[in-house]
Design a protein around this nucleic acid. Structure first.
Lengths: 251, 251
DNA sequence: CTGTTTATCGTCAAGGAGACGACTATGATC
DNA sequence: GATCATAGTCGTCTCCTTGACGATAAACAG
C-alpha cells in the first residue's frame, strides 16, 4: 500500500475526562452541562479537541486544568495534583452525530475539592455521585436522585472509568490519590469503602495497610478531624504496587 | 465554545496490533517488514488506517484477518479465534514523520499458528520472540538474535502489550487464549512459564488450576502429545476472572 | 526390563485474611 | 467533672492458600 495522503479519512480527536473524587462517603464524578447541541442542556464528561501539536496526555492535562484548576502529576509525580492516566479510546462511527470523532478518555483521581470550577467557557460544572450517573444496575439510585442521562456514550466511558478505579485500588496504592497529602488510616479506609461501596473492618484494614512496607509513611503528626481518638497522619509511601493486594469482599 | 468545523485539526487514525502467541516455549509477537518509507525495511507491528465508517474494534479485526487469517472473538465469544482487546492509544505529535497520526493499539492473544501469513499487501511477516524485539532490559537477547529496532514507537507499544498480557493472565483465565481449544494442564503451565519467563512447580500449578471452579472443564479425553504419562484434556471454563489470582513468583 | 519423561496426588509448615474482643484517647453531653 | 459516643489501635484465633517437596502412575525409548 503506497502512501497516499488522500487514502485515509480525516478524524477529529478529542479527550474526555473521567474525574473521580470521594465526597461525603460517595464516589463522585465531575460533569459539565452542555451549552450547545447536540445534547444541549445534558450533562456530559468534560473534554475537548486535541490541538494540532499536542500530545494526548498534554491535552488531557490542559482540559483538566481548564475545568478544575488541578495540575496532574504523571505516573511518578510528587505534586499536590491529581493522578491522571489514559483510560480507553472510543471510536464508534456514530457516537457524535456531527462528525467522526475518536475520543481518548482519561481517568483522573483527585482529592476532594471544595467546589468544581465553572469551566473556562462558562459551562456549569458539578460533582455528581457516580451511582446516580450510572443508573440502575450500578447500585440503585437513591430516592430523590433523578436519573441523569449523560450525553454521547459518556455513560459507558464513566462506567469504564469507575471500573478501572475500583480494580486498580485493589492492587496499587492509587487510593491515596483520593486523599489529601496527609491522611489517616480511617480516611483511606473510607476511600476504599466509597469506591467499592462496601464496609471494611477497621481493624483488619489497619493491620493490612500499616503492615504493607512502603505503602504508608507516618508523618509524626496526628489529627482528630474525624472525631474520636487522635489518629496518626501518613503520607503515601513510594510503593505503587500492593503485593499481596487489598482484597475486595465478595458479593 | 460554539461548534466550528474548522476549529479542530484533522488527524489520521490507525490501529496497530500486538499479536502475541507462545511458540516453542517463548512469547512471540507478529511483526511485518515495512515496504515503504518511513522506516522502509524495518520491522513493525501490523496495522493500518481506520476506515471512515468503521469501529475501532472492527478495524482491528479486519487488520488481524488480513495479516493472519484469524477471526477474533470478543469479550464473550466462543469461536476458535483469538482474543482481541483494546490496549492503549498513542498520539505523540511526531510519532509519524509524515503527518499527525493517532494509533489505537490492540492486543491479540492467539494459539500457536503454523506460519504467519504474508500480508494481503505482500509484506513479509514473521513471529519474533518478544525478548529479542524488546531488547536489553527485558531479558537479554540470546546469542544470535540480532537486536531488532521496531519502526515508529512500536517498541513501546509492544512493551505495553506484553506487560498487559503478563498482568492479565495473573487474575484472569486469559492464558487459555494462547492454547488450542483442548489442552492439558502442562500445556497451560508452559504458557504461563513462557509469558512470565519463570519456572512454575507443576504440582502446585496443577492443584491451583484444577481447584479453581469454572476455570477448566475436562473434556474426557487424554493425550500424550507432550510425551510422558497421558494427560487429561480440558477446555476453558466459563470463568473469566481468577479469584484468588495466579501468583507470579517474585523475581 | 529399565530409565526417562510427564502427570497427578499427598503432606507439611508458613503466612495472610476474616471475625471479633479489648483497650485507648478524644470531643460532646448531662 | 462524669458519662457517653466515636474513632483508632493492638491482639488473638481459626481457616485457607501457598510454596516446597516426597511419592506414585502411565506412557515411550532404548
Amino acid at each position: 500500500m503506497p502512501y497516499d495522503p488522500s487514502a485515509f479519512p480525516p478524524f477529529a480527536v478529542t479527550v474526555d475526562l473521567v474525574v473521580l473524587t470521594v465526597r461525603s462517603h460517595a464516589l463522585c464524578a465531575l460533569v459539565v452541562r452542555r451549552g450547545e447541541p447536540p445534547y444541549q442542556g445534558r450533562w456530559a464528561l468534560p473534554g475537548g479537541f486535541v490541538r494540532a501539536d499536542e500530545d494526548l496526555a498534554a491535552a488531557a492535562a490542559r482540559e483538566l486544568k481548564e475545568e478544575t484548576g488541578l495540575r496532574p502529576h504523571g505516573p511518578e509525580g510528587k505534586d499536590t495534583g491529581a493522578h491522571l492516566e489514559q483510560l480507553a479510546t472510543y471510536g464508534d462511527p456514530y457516537r457524535d452525530p456531527r462528525m467522526r470523532v475518536v475520543s481518548v478518555a482519561h481517568l483522573v483521581l483527585s482529592p476532594d475539592l471544595p467546589p468544581p470550577i465553572a469551566g473556562g467557557d462558562a459551562r456549569s460544572a458539578r460533582w455528581s455521585p457516580a451511582e446516580s450517573l450510572l443508573g440502575p444496575g450500578e447500585g440503585l439510585s437513591r430516592d430523590g436522585d433523578q436519573p441523569v442521562q449523560l450525553a454521547f456514550d459518556h455513560a459507558q466511558i464513566l462506567l469504564d472509568g469507575v471500573e478501572r478505579a475500583r480494580a486498580k485500588i485493589e492492587y496499587s496504592s492509587l487510593a491515596t490519590a483520593f486523599c489529601p497529602p496527609e491522611f489517616t488510616v480511617g480516611e483511606l479506609r473510607r476511600v476504599y469503602e466509597a469506591v467499592w461501596g462496601v464496609a471494611l473492618d477497621p481493624r483488619n484494614f489497619h493491620r493490612k495497610v500499616t503492615g504493607t512496607p512502603g505503602f504508608l509513611v507516618p508523618t509524626g503528626g496526628t489529627t482528630t478531624r474525624q472525631g474520636g481518638r487522635p489518629a496518626q497522619l501518613f503520607r503515601a509511601g513510594g510503593a505503587t504496587l500492593l503485593n499481596p493486594p487489598m482484597l475486595r469482599p465478595e458479593v
